[in-house]
C-alpha cells in the first residue's frame, strides 16, 4: 500500500468516525421529532440530545457505595465498542483503513462485547432492577445475535466474502439485480435492529415504568459522565445499525474512491437515507404496541428463521449467480 493510499484511507476512516460521533445524537433527536409529529404531539427540539449529553457530562458522578471498578470502566469500554462499530460500517466509502481488521462477524462480536459489559455493569451494584435488566438484555442478545449473523451470512454468500467493504462494494456496484433473498434478510434485519436498539415492539426507549424496562433498567445506577457516555453509545448503536441497514440493502451512492467530491456526494446520500430511515423507525414505533417480554423470543426467533430462509432462498433461486 502506498503512503498516499494509506493516508487517504486513514483520513476517510477518521472522517467516518467523526461523522458517526457527531450525527448519532441527531439521529435519535430526529426519530423523536418524527415520532411526536406522527402521534400529534408537540415535538421536542431536534438538538435536545446534545443538550442532554452536555448537561450530563457537566454533572458530578454519583457512584453507589458498592460499585466496583468494573462499573466505572464499563461506560468507556462500551462507548469505544460502539464508536468502533460505527466506524467499521462502510457508510461513506468502502475504502477504510481498519476494514481488514474486522469483518462482519467481528462486528457482531463487537456488539456482543458491549452487551456483555453493559449487562455485567447492570449486575454490579446488586440492585433488583439491574439484574432484571441484565437478564432481559442477555435474553434479547442471545436471540438477536445469531439472527444478525445469519443476515450477514446471506449477504456474505451473495458476495462471497464476510468483509463488510467487499459485501457493500459487491451489492452497490453490481449490475442491477434483484435478490429475493435480501428481502427476507431485510425483514429479519429490521426486526433484529428494533430489538437490539430497544425500540418499540421489544422495549420502549422512553419508558419509565420499571417493570417493563430493559435497557433503562440496566443503567439505572449510572449518572453524570458515565450516563452520558452510555446514552451516547446507545445512539451510536442506533446509528451503526441504521448505517448497516443502508449499506446492506440500499447501498447506492456510496463512494468507491476516497476523493473529496465522491465523499461529499456520499455524505449527502447518507444524510438523506438516514432521515428516511429515522422516519420509518418512528412510523414502526407509532404503529406497533410494545409486546410482553416473553413474546420477544418468538419475535426474534421469527427473525432468525427468516434469515435462515434468506440463505435457503438464495441457494435455490440465485444459486447460479
Amino acid at each position: 500500500m502506498s503512503l498516499y493510499a494509506f493516508a487517504t484511507q486513514l483520513l476517510t476512516q477518521l472522517l467516518e468516525l467523526l461523522i458517526a460521533l457527531a450525527l448519532a445524537p441527531l439521529l435519535g433527536g430526529w426519530v423523536n421529532v418524527c415520532r411526536a409529529r406522527l402521534q400529534k404531539r408537540c415535538p421536542p427540539p431536534l438538538l435536545l440530545p446534545y443538550h442532554n449529553l452536555l448537561k450530563l457530562f457537566r454533572k458530578d458522578v454519583l457512584l453507589a457505595h458498592n460499585a466496583s471498578s468494573l462499573f466505572r470502566v464499563a461506560p468507556y469500554l462500551i462507548f469505544s465498542c460502539m464508536a468502533l462499530a460505527a466506524a467499521l460500517v462502510p457508510t461513506l466509502s468502502t475504502e477504510l483503513l481498519f476494514a481488514p481488521a474486522a469483518d462482519a462477524i467481528a462486528l457482531v462480536g463487537l456488539f456482543a462485547l458491549a452487551r456483555v459489559f453493559i449487562a455485567l455493569a447492570g449486575m454490579d451494584v446488586g440492585t433488583a432492577f439491574g439484574s432484571l435488566g441484565a437478564r432481559r438484555e442477555m435474553l434479547i442478545g442471545f436471540l438477536a445475535e445469531p439472527a444478525l449473523l445469519m443476515v450477514f451470512f446471506t449477504a456474505s454468500i451473495i458476495s462471497g466474502s464476510t468483509s463488510l467493504a467487499t459485501i457493500v462494494g459487491t451489492l452497490a456496484h453490481h449490475e442491477f439485480a434483484i435478490y429475493p433473498s435480501l428481502a427476507f434478510a431485510g425483514v429479519a434485519f429490521t426486526m433484529v435492529s428494533l430489538a437490539e436498539n430497544g425500540r418499540v415492539p421489544v422495549d420502549n426507549p422512553t419508558t419509565h415504568l420499571e417493570l417493563t424496562m430493559i435497557h433503562e433498567a440496566m443503567i439505572l445506577e449510572y449518572s453524570g459522565r458515565h450516563l452520558a457516555l452510555i446514552e451516547w453509545a446507545a445512539s451510536l448503536k442506533l446509528f451503526a445499525y441504521s448505517c448497516l441497514g443502508i449499506a446492506l440493502f440500499f447501498p447506492f451512492g456510496i463512494a468507491e474512491s476516497t476523493g473529496p467530491g465522491a465523499l461529499a456526494v456520499a455524505g449527502v446520500f447518507l444524510v438523506g437515507k438516514l432521515a428516511v430511515g429515522g422516519f420509518v423507525l418512528a412510523l414502526i414505533e407509532t404503529l406497533n404496541a410494545k409486546m410482553r417480554v416473553f413474546r420477544t423470543p418468538e419475535f426474534l426467533g421469527t427473525a432468525f428463521l427468516l434469515a435462515v430462509l434468506a440463505i435457503l432462498v438464495h441457494l435455490l433461486l440465485e444459486g447460479g449467480r
Binding site: 439485480a177 434483484i178 429475493p180 428481502a183 428463521l305 430462509l309 432462498v313
Partner: peptide, 23 residues
C-alpha cells in the same frame, strides 16, 4: 427485462407470506 428475477422475487414474497401466516 428482469422478468425471471421479478418472478423469483414474487416467489420469495409468497414464501415469506406463507411463513407469516404460519406465525
Amino acid at each position: 427485462p428482469f422478468a425471471g428475477q421479478l418472478i423469483n422475487l414474487c416467489a420469495a414474497i409468497m414464501l415469506l407470506l406463507a411463513f407469516a401466516m404460519l406465525a
